[in-house]
Amino acid sequence: MLNDTKKRKDIKHGLVIIIISILFFAFLHYFSNIQKPELVNRKGTSYEKAVVTEILQDNIQEDGSRIGYQKVKVKILSGKLKGQIKEATSFAGNLYGANCTVGMKVIVNINQHEDNILISVYSYDRSKVIYAFVGMFLAILWAIGGKKGLKSAIALIFTFICIIYLFLPMLYKGYSPFLSAVILIILITIVSLYLIDGISKKSVAAMIGTTLGVIIAGVLAFLFGKFAGISGYNVSQIEELVFIANNTKLQIGGILFAGILIASLGAVMDVSMSIASTLSEIYSHNNDMSVKELFKSGINVGRDMMGTMSNTLILAFTGGSINTLILNYAYDLRYNQIINMYDIGIEIMQGVSGSIAVILSVPLVSLIAALILTYKKEV
């Protein structure tokens, strides 16, 4: 009888989740259905899959380097010219073009105006490698993590969908970047922790602590930027962003700080859930503990995590700016020049504010978890 009741509850619970999911994704589809202004004239231009069938003119030199361009024949595998064999050029560049060989899969840029067709090799066709690599990651996550690993993979996919179909459209429509990031963080945190642990006292504590910690870090980053004279207008590619903002409702100023919130979310969520789980386990073995005792236990556990997680964020941001660091080192720039560069200031702001979020999440989650776990006893 109890098993039947549990099964009925599980079925109802599953149906509710399915209905909410359908409504949410229907909302995302409607919300992200945007008529974008044409920023670049792409009439007659397309990017199609192709395979190299013949090398007409190579550009390899005696020393093995490549200069200039190759002339090749390619068979178009997609688009209006599918099945046709055409001549194309492939320039020797680090960002565009490819060192073509017969049988190589490539992406070609086709420019067609009336009867004139100009085709150039844009890049290698690496889409299958990317899909395989991501698939391998998800498979490993599932194989080692089991059911929770599968739920973590679903949470990752949900995060990706929210960024593409909710966060970016919100920015494009002119919503505050900071507010958009907060909404995104709350959604991702709730769904991710729910999938991993369901609705429990420890997951609720982790949800609240994660959200508060990340928001506080974002506010501190904003204050740092205000006093240091750094805004979203001091980032790279600002000219392109200004051009987009002039043709849309994009608010450039807050994008930098929204990015800081999103970048620190993963580490803060990790620390928050770890502390909440530890306190929940401690309390389950000794439910005579007071709020103060549980709070102290959370702080003690968190102290061991602060250093490693702060290091994780600092190293992540350092890795993202390694090109800038190499250039500064190679050109032997002076200290006063380096410390006052916008790029360096932004990296410091991102790394430090993210680390502050990790540090603050320790006392926040410890206090919240202690209060929630002992709530009935205290009452």
Rank of each mutant, 00 (worst) to 15 (best):
T189A: 09
E293I: 08
D197T: 02
A245C: 00
I199N: 09
L294P: 08
N247I: 01
I275W: 12
S290G: 15
T248M: 04
A206G: 05
S277I: 13
K292G: 02
G254W: 03
I230S: 03
T248W: 07
L279T: 12
V271L: 01
E293T: 14
S280H: 15
K296V: 11
G253D: 14
I252A: 13
S203T: 15
S284C: 08
K249Q: 14
V214Y: 08
L294T: 11
I230P: 07
S264D: 05
K226I: 07
Y233D: 06
G225W: 02
A276L: 04
S200A: 09
A276G: 02
Q237A: 14
G266Y: 11
S200I: 01
F257N: 09
A228M: 13
G198P: 08
N286I: 06
F243P: 06
I252E: 09
G232F: 03
A221D: 03
K201H: 06
K202T: 07
K292P: 00
S280G: 15
T211M: 06
N300M: 08
S203E: 07
N286F: 07
V219S: 05
I260S: 07
Y233I: 00
K201N: 14
S272R: 03
G209S: 10
L193E: 00
T211K: 02
G218S: 11
K202P: 03
F224C: 12
A276Q: 02
G218V: 11
V235F: 00
N286M: 05
L279N: 05
S203Y: 06
I244Q: 01
T248I: 04
S297V: 03
I244Y: 00
T189Y: 07
I215H: 10
I244T: 01
G229K: 06
I190D: 06
E293V: 11
G266C: 11
G213L: 13
F257D: 09
N287P: 07
S297I: 00
F257Q: 10
A217F: 11
G266K: 11
G259C: 11
A245N: 00
L279W: 09
K201I: 05
G253I: 12
L223Q: 07
G254N: 04
A276K: 00
F295N: 08
F222M: 10
T189F: 08
A205M: 07
F257E: 10
